[in-house]
Design a binder for these strands. Structure first.
Length: 646
DNA sequence: TTAGGGTTAG
């Protein structure tokens, strides 16, 4: 015993082994380990086994366990739990199962906490059904047993079972704790359930737990209930960084960059330092509101976490979505590790910014690097084809998806194909494709076709496509607007008015067009005819000057983009104050000549504003970049990167 | 022995 003590660096188990009782059903004896000198005596076997478990010597511990088994002896629960943890760490499933069998052998009834370890082991091995079987056979279940199962169901996206288990647990009289609530909240699929759980959390006095708080903020954000999340956050007296990250992330992911960045400033004032998660959300906020200058500033902090893949991917996306491909490319080249998301971000970035060939070249390179594309990569590839009129290539990639990469085309890929054919004017092929699609077309598919009908003035097909959209989504404003636009373009004013009347009757409202621009780290937003800006007069004067100048260069307002049947002068006036024109004028007044003017628009840019931007870029010798709802337009020297193919 | 945040498309 003395010799053994000297050789073991961690004596804690010995005190446990020597004091624990040994159970031997064959002899019905309980022995004190320290009294036995014989190496094969039960207590020495137990001692040896316990030592090996704590030493994490898996192979020898399993042999020692077999000796225990043959002597009908059991060791203490803590030794077994160490062994189970060791099996989990080494991914030793078969050994884990042997431990399970041994623990239950000879009529031995393990303590609940030991069975919980086994439950956890099966779950970590991905054997949820085995865990469930064991759970059902447990003589007694405590809150940890229930929470382990609830958490497993939540993580396995089996929300219904997770919630069912919560109810069963409460019926058995077991009270949920903070672990239970923070797990089960992620399984909530109804706002009502979230509110009920929120009430229970308050009743149990668990709302101040940081895990519960961040789980509540996250789930409210997932349901778009940002103010409820903020209320939970604001009630916090002491919090941690993850709770701050949750609240910042919830606004960033819901495209409310103002509040996300405001909270980020508050976090810094409260004395917290950003980590990778914080910076990822801040970059996302910069991305949604096209704040390149701020994004560049964040880039400086990202360098501290250069090995963080998620953060670096967010950085790439920020540069791409701010229309700065040089920044994206240089960050991409410097990354020490790149995954399928890094490549997909770049492919989509090139495609959306009008560099389809570069996107496809990158796709080839990605495969050379041995990275397997996923279904989102293929959306980017098909987008590149459709926006460059590469019909043959598009067909090739679409048909090769399943064959080469095992990706079954889904609705979004089919939508890209409809777009590809529609944009290329192959409307007959597009409708044939829709009718032959394996997945049923949704409203987006039909709206894609409707958009192509507008470009190619096919009113009959447009009416049919609009009808399909409105059958699926009766309140889809886009369908009404597109159809009304198509009729207006063809001077069928009565039909256009009829569509707008139906729209009004059904209470459908058009989302107002809005454009944003960042100047001196401040975001300025404009809506059509906006006169509320403090510099409205200056902007109006600048706009008049620009229109006069481009008119001399041949600009004629394209009144096809005005929906109403009004006099030409009025139509021109209506076009003049489109939000993107106001933002361009504001950008010209307030930014330095060397920097491009970057604008974001919530809807698609209109054809007249597109022409306006091209001519202004030429006459003012400025680069203008507009990100609309679908893609980017880089205006330079009187041309656009989209080659007018939008 | 059970729990939390951040990345790609349409």
């Amino acid at each position: 015993m003395k010799t053994l003590l000297k050789t073991i660096p961690q004596p804690s188990f010995l005190s446990f082994a020597s004091s624990s009782l040994l159970y031997s059903p064959s002899s019905s004896l309980h022995l004190q380990a320290q009294t036995i000198q014989n190496p094969s005596s039960p207590s020495n076997l137990v001692e040896n086994f316990t030592r090996l478990c704590y030493q994490r010597d898996l192979t020898n511990a399993i042999s020692a366990m077999n000796s225990l088994q043959s002597h009908h002896v059991h060791a203490g629960s803590l030794a077994y739990s160490e062994l189970i943890k060791c099996c989990v760490d080494r991914r030793a499933i078969n050994h884990g199962k042997m431990v399970h069998l041994h623990i239950f052998s000879n009529g031995y009834v393990p303590e609940t906490f030991l069975i919980n370890h086994l439950l956890n082991m099966y779950i970590k091995f991905g054997l949820l059904d085995e865990a469930r079987k064991l759970f059902d056979e447990m003589p007694e279940r405590n809150v940890v047993s229930w929470t382990t199962m609830i958490s497993a169901y939540t993580n396995g996206n089996r929300s219904e079972e997770a919630l069912k288990f919560l109810i069963l647990m409460q019926r058995e009289g077991v009270r949920a704790n903070m672990f239970t609530f923070s797990s089960v909240l992620r399984s909530c699929d109804r706002l009502r359930t979230i509110r009920q759980l929120h009430c229970s959390i308050i009743k149990c006095g668990l709302e101040s737990d940081v895990f519960v708080r961040s789980a509540l903020i996250d789930i409210y954000a997932k349901w778009g209930e940002l103010d409820n999340g903020l209320r939970v956050f604001d009630e916090m007296v002491t919090g941690d960084l993850i709770v701050w990250n949750s609240i910042i992330g919830s606004f960033a992911q819901n495209s409310d960059s103002d509040r996300a960045l405001h909270l980020f400033k508050r976090m810094k004032r409260a004395g917290f330092s950003s980590n990778q998660g914080t910076l990822t959300s801040v970059l996302r906020a910069c991305t949604v509101s096209v704040q390149l200058d701020l994004g560049r500033q964040v880039h400086g902090h990202v360098l501290k976490f250069e090995s963080d893949l998620i953060l670096n991917n967010a950085l790439l996306d920020m540069y791409c979505k701010c229309g700065n491909l040089e920044g994206a490319n240089s960050a991409f080249m410097r990354m020490s590790e790149r995954d399928v998301i890094s490549w997909t971000t770049m492919i989509a970035g090139f495609a959306q910014n009008g560099h389809s060939q570069e996107a496809l070249r990158l796709f080839g390179l990605m495969k050379d690097f041995g990275i397997r594309p996923n279904h989102i990569t293929m959306v980017g590839v098909l987008f590149a084809c459709s926006h460059a009129g590469l019909v043959e290539d598009g067909w090739y990639y679409f048909q090769s998806m399943k064959k080469l990469y095992g990706i079954v085309p889904q609705r979004e890929h089919c939508g890209c194909m409809v777009d590809l054919l529609g944009r290329a004017g192959k409307l007959d092929e597009a409708i044939k494709f829709i009718h032959e699609m394996e997945c049923a077309p949704d409203a987006v598919t039909w709206k894609t076709l409707l958009g192509a009908c507008r470009v190619y003035h096919n009113m009959d097909l447009a009416a049919y496509a609009a009808e399909q959209v409105l059958q699926l989504e009766p309140h889809d404003e886009g369908a009404y607007i597109l159809l009304s636009n198509i009729y207006a373009n063809s001077r069928r004013w009565e039909d256009a008015e009829e569509v707008r009347k139906t729209m009004r009757e059904r209470g459908v409202r058009k989302e107002p067009g809005c454009s944003w621009i960042e100047v001196d780290r401040q975001i300025h937003a404009f809506v059509r005819g906006d006169k509320s800006h403090p510099h409205a007069d200056k902007i109006s004067k600048e706009l008049n000057r620009l229109i006069q100048r481009i008119t001399e260069a041949g600009y004629v307002p394209d009144t096809n983009f005005v929906l109403q049947d009004i006099e030409r002068e009025q139509k021109e006036d209506s076009l003049r104050y489109h939000s993107e024109k106001l933002a361009i004028a504001f950008g010209l007044i307030h930014s330095i000549k060397e920097k491009p003017i970057r604008i974001m628009k919530n809807l698609r840019i209109c054809g007249d504003c597109h022409t306006f931007a091209k001519l202004v870029a030429k006459t003012e010798n400025r680069n203008i970049i507009i990100r609309d709802a679908i893609r980017f337009h880089h205006f330079k020297d009187g041309a656009c990167s989209c080659a007018d193919y939008w």
